[in-house]
């Protein structure tokens, strides 16, 4: 039988991973000064809140234009999807796929992944626990790469400043998109994977 440290009265500091006795729950870690908690506090509620915020921000992020490319005075503001379609029109399939993946596929997959993980904890879907851990690590690692489109707007707006000949400006969709990315990164940080194992062990006791 594999034991959870908590059932043996041991908790760890989540910053420096120093083990401590359960009596130190809520007190500062003797090594790094971070407050020790047996589990990340309000993990499920905070993760849901940040996840909902990011889902809401994804709507304006996709509907509002993120940048305007003007060439010889002509050019309209374009949304993320219009940017991808413009790349396809210019036969740049590879780069269109990179942008589509980073800006649309990854954010949607992250949201779905976190919802599955939250429901795992809340409803006790603890089959394939190891796959769920992989899913969490994937969501956590991939999250930052959605910032790609923000950096592309930043770089193009800086370099394409040739007066009337060609110019690029950023639009408000970029703010909504950046907020959505930040909220999902924070949501992944708030989630505590140990809750999945707690639930798993709890169910093993009931149905051994």
């Amino acid at each position: 039988m594999q034991h959870s440290a908590l059932t043996r009265g041991i908790i760890i500091c989540h910053r420096c991973e120093k083990p401590a006795s359960i009596k130190q729950d809520g007190q500062p870690c003797p090594r790094c000064g971070t407050h020790i908690h047996r589990r990340k506090r309000h993990s499920v509620a905070y993760t849901w809140a940040l996840l909902l915020a990011s889902m809401i921000m994804l709507i304006p992020a996709n509907l509002l234009p993120i940048m305007t490319f003007k060439s010889l005075g002509k050019g309209d503001p374009a949304t993320i999807m219009q940017g991808v379609l413009q790349l396809l029109e210019h036969d740049m399939l590879g780069i269109a796929l990179v942008v589509l993946t980073a800006s649309i596929i990854i954010p949607v997959m992250k949201v779905i992944g976190l919802i599955i993980l939250l429901l795992t904890v809340q409803l006790g879907w603890t089959t394939n626990v190891r796959q769920k851990m992989l899913m969490y690590h994937f969501v956590e690692w991939i999250g930052r790469w959605s910032m790609l489109d923000i950096f592309v707007v930043a770089i193009l707006a800086a370099i394409v400043q040739l007066g009337n000949l060609a110019s690029v400006t950023g639009n408000t969709g970029a703010t909504a998109f950046a907020a959505a990315v930040i909220f999902t990164m924070l949501a992944a940080n708030c989630f505590d994977t140990r809750l999945i194992w707690d639930k798993h062990l709890e169910q093993l006791e009931v149905f051994p």
Partner: peptide
């Protein structure tokens, strides 16, 4: 266990002792 926490490692991801 709880009197000598320094003798253990705890997995930060799944809480295994």
């Amino acid at each position: 266990a709880s009197t000598q926490p320094g003798k253990f490692w705890v997995c930060p991801e799944c809480d295994l002792l």
